Simulated scan of single mutants.
Amino acid sequence: MFELRRLRLLHELSLRGTIAEVAASLSYSPSTVSQQLALLEREAGVALLEPDGRRVRLTPQGRMLAEHAARALDLDERARAALTAHTGWQPVRLAAMPTAAETIVPAALTLLAERAPELRVELAELAPEESLFELWARRFDLVIAEQYPGYTRERRDGVVHELLGDDPIRIALPSLEPPTPLAQLRDHAWVMEPEGTAARQWAVQQCRAAGFEPDVRFDAADLTAHVRLIAAGHAVGMLPDLIWGDEPSPLTVADLPGSPVREVFTAVRAASRDDEAVELVRAALADAFAAHRRVSP
Rank of each mutant, 00 (worst) to 15 (best):
E247Y: 10
A283D: 15
L83T: 04
W89R: 11
D215C: 05
A209L: 15
S14P: 01
Q205I: 05
R71E: 15
P51W: 11
S131D: 05
V33I: 05
V191Y: 02
Q36V: 04
R55T: 07
A270W: 10
A284W: 05
T99V: 13
A95C: 05
A127Y: 09
H68I: 15
R153Q: 13
L119F: 11
S25N: 09
D167Q: 01
V227M: 09
G211Y: 14
A79H: 14
A113H: 10
A270L: 13
R57F: 09
L142M: 08
C207P: 00
G62P: 07
R217A: 12
H188Y: 07
R55L: 09
V92W: 03
R228I: 01
E195G: 09
T103G: 01
G196L: 12
H226N: 03
P60C: 13
V105N: 00
E213I: 10
V204W: 04
T32E: 11
R80T: 08
L65I: 09
L239V: 14
V121H: 00
V56P: 03
A101S: 15
A291F: 08
Q205F: 03
R8I: 03
G233Y: 14
G88H: 09
M238W: 03
R120G: 03
A24P: 02
E276W: 05
A271L: 03
A172M: 11
L285G: 00
V92Q: 03
F2M: 11
E263M: 08
W89I: 03
F133G: 04
G237H: 04
A231L: 07
P260M: 05
P117D: 02
R55P: 02
L94I: 08
D287C: 02
P51M: 11
A145L: 06
V264F: 12
Y148N: 01
A291E: 14
P250R: 05
L26A: 01
E114Y: 12
S249K: 01
G62V: 09
Q184T: 07
A221V: 07
L285F: 08
L65C: 09
L126H: 01
A210R: 03
V159S: 00
A210H: 04
P98F: 14
A116Y: 07
L185N: 00
R138L: 08
D187I: 06
P194N: 13
R269I: 05
T59Y: 09
R170Y: 04
H188S: 07
A198N: 12
L49Q: 06
T197V: 13
A137Y: 12
P178H: 07
L10K: 00
P60Y: 14
R200E: 12
E12R: 11
L49C: 02
A47D: 10
E263F: 06
R93F: 11
T59Q: 03
W244P: 01
A277I: 05
T32I: 07
H161M: 10
A225M: 08
R228V: 00
E263A: 13
T32F: 13
I230C: 15
V278D: 00
A96W: 00
R294F: 07
Q35V: 06
H11G: 01
M238E: 01
P168E: 04
A232F: 11
A101Y: 04
T99R: 08
R156K: 15
D275L: 07
D52K: 12
E279D: 13
E146W: 10
G17M: 11
A66E: 01
S249M: 02
